[in-house]
Computed example of a mutant assay.
Amino acid sequence: MKKLFTILLSAIFLCSLNSCKINGNFKGLYSYYETTKKENPGLFIKNDNKICSLKYSKNIFIINGKSLKDCLQEDDKSLVYIWGPKCSSKVCIPLSSVQEYCTRKNIRLYIVAEYFDSEMMNKEYAIERPILGIDTEYYKTNLTKKYLTAFINDIAQTNYSEKRYLYFEKGELKDVQEEILLYHN
């Protein structure tokens, strides 16, 4: 009787597994670089050269943190915005709003995509410089937290704190904030 009960309970458990389902996607957990590249092959430009003087284009420039660090050192004031293309939180404000804020405050803006998304990256934005994508091959991982941590360490010699706004003066990290509204320079 005990054996029959165990078999019956196991069968019910296995049947319930078929009805388990996760709705949605895992955007933000993985980079989705390869998927996005397949969906839109001309979107990305791998760039190991100077990116400091790039003007806006619809292309996403794939870089590592050391390339961006060079630019940050040239700028009196700069802001790195870690942009989540599908983020709808109050801390993820439209790119044009961040650009307007930085223009008003005379801060050079660098938008770095947290992960890749073909739909959102294929749109036109009212920004001065192209969106930058993190080179997942350079960091040898497709896991967002790992390559983002390494990238932030390259530009700021600090660990990624999951805050989206990093403020620099002459390449030196001065502030890390969750919301842009907290900047009163």
Rank of each mutant, 00 (worst) to 15 (best):
K3E: 08
K3D: 08
T6G: 01
I7K: 10
I7W: 04
A11W: 04
L14S: 07
C15H: 02
C20S: 09
C20N: 10
F26R: 10
K27D: 15
G28R: 08
Y30W: 13
Y30S: 14
E34A: 14
T36G: 03
K37M: 11
L43C: 05
N47E: 15
N47V: 08
D48I: 11
L54H: 09
Y56C: 12
Y56G: 03
Y56Q: 04
S57V: 04
N64I: 00
K66Y: 07
Q73T: 14
E74Y: 01
D76N: 04
K77D: 01
K77R: 14
S78I: 06
V80M: 03
Y81A: 02
G84I: 01
P85T: 12
K86W: 09
S88Y: 13
S89Y: 07
I93Q: 04
I93T: 09
L95I: 05
S96D: 15
S96Y: 11
V98T: 09
C102G: 01
K105V: 05
I107D: 01
R108Y: 08
Y110E: 05
I111D: 03
A113K: 04
Y115R: 00
D117N: 12
Y125R: 09
E128M: 10
I131Q: 08
L132F: 11
I134M: 06
Y139D: 06
Y139F: 05
T144H: 04
T149L: 11
T149I: 05
F151E: 10
I155S: 05
R164P: 01
Y165L: 10
L166H: 08
Y167D: 02
E169I: 01
E172M: 02
D175F: 05
V176M: 02
L181K: 08
L181M: 11
L182A: 14
Y183M: 02
